[in-house]
Amino acid sequence: MRVFLCALVSVFLMGCVTQPTKKDMSAFQAAAPRSILVVPTINKSLDVDAPNYVLAALPVPIAEKGYYVFPVNTTKYVLEQEGYYEGERIHQQSTPTLAKLFDADAVLYVSINRWDAQFALLTTVVTVEFDYRLVSKDGTELWKENKRMQYQPQSNNAGHPLATLIVAVVNAAVTRAAPNYMPLTQQANQQVFILGPDAIPDGPYRPTAAR
């Protein structure tokens, strides 16, 4: 009887586990965007080069997902001609105004929350974190996501302990001196737009979505 009761309680508890809630994509499906305008990012990190790297990495996964993406360099140039130079100011503009400049169906806003390398005694942890927000040309929010990725170089534990320690210190110093943020950024974009459970739906130009 005791075994039976324990099993019954276990089944009950398993049934009470909250499953992740899928995002409501009804607004996205109703808007059915075909073209996406990627505007310059807001940079909350201390690295002044981060916005250019992040902006350059965004079009590829979105295009792979099946959407037309306006060339980011052309977008940046046109916005500058309109007097919009800083990401903060661009994000403050109304989405219909920005979309109308390019005849875009939706606008993607990205904020860089983290883009740093934190050094400890034997390791360096590289972190990137982004907020993504897609808004239709009429101002309706279609989708949003947050993604944080970290990388920590690992040392081979095989061999002499002193040699392993030296290798760990050197790897940490090298990573701190020249952290490589792009692999993390590309992984974040892949998971957010393509691989993640709440990725945007396939666009009209994705081969698998072709009729």
Rank of each mutant, 00 (worst) to 15 (best):
G66D: 10
G66C: 13
Y68L: 07
Y68M: 11
V69A: 03
V69T: 06
F70A: 04
P71M: 09
P71C: 08
V72I: 12
V72L: 08
N73R: 14
K76R: 13
Y77A: 15
Y77F: 15
L79Q: 06
L79G: 06
E80G: 15
Q81H: 12
E82G: 10
Y84Q: 13
Y84G: 10
E86M: 08
G87I: 00
G87P: 03
E88S: 05
E88I: 06
I90Y: 02
I90C: 04
H91W: 12
H91S: 03
H91D: 07
H91R: 02
Q92A: 12
Q92Y: 11
Q93S: 12
Q93A: 08
T95I: 09
P96G: 07
P96W: 01
T97S: 09
L98Y: 00
K100N: 05
L101D: 02
L101N: 05
D103W: 07
D103L: 15
D103T: 08
D103M: 11
D105Y: 05
A106T: 04
A106E: 09
V107W: 03
L108T: 07
Y109H: 12
Y109T: 09
V110L: 01
V110C: 02
S111G: 11
S111F: 05
S111N: 13
I112Y: 06
N113I: 06
W115E: 09
W115M: 10
D116N: 13
D116G: 11
D116M: 09
A117P: 08
A117Q: 14
Q118I: 15
A120S: 09
L121V: 07
L122H: 13
T123S: 15
T123M: 14
T124Q: 09
V126M: 01
V126T: 07
V128L: 11
E129M: 08
F130S: 05
L134M: 00
L134K: 00
V135I: 14
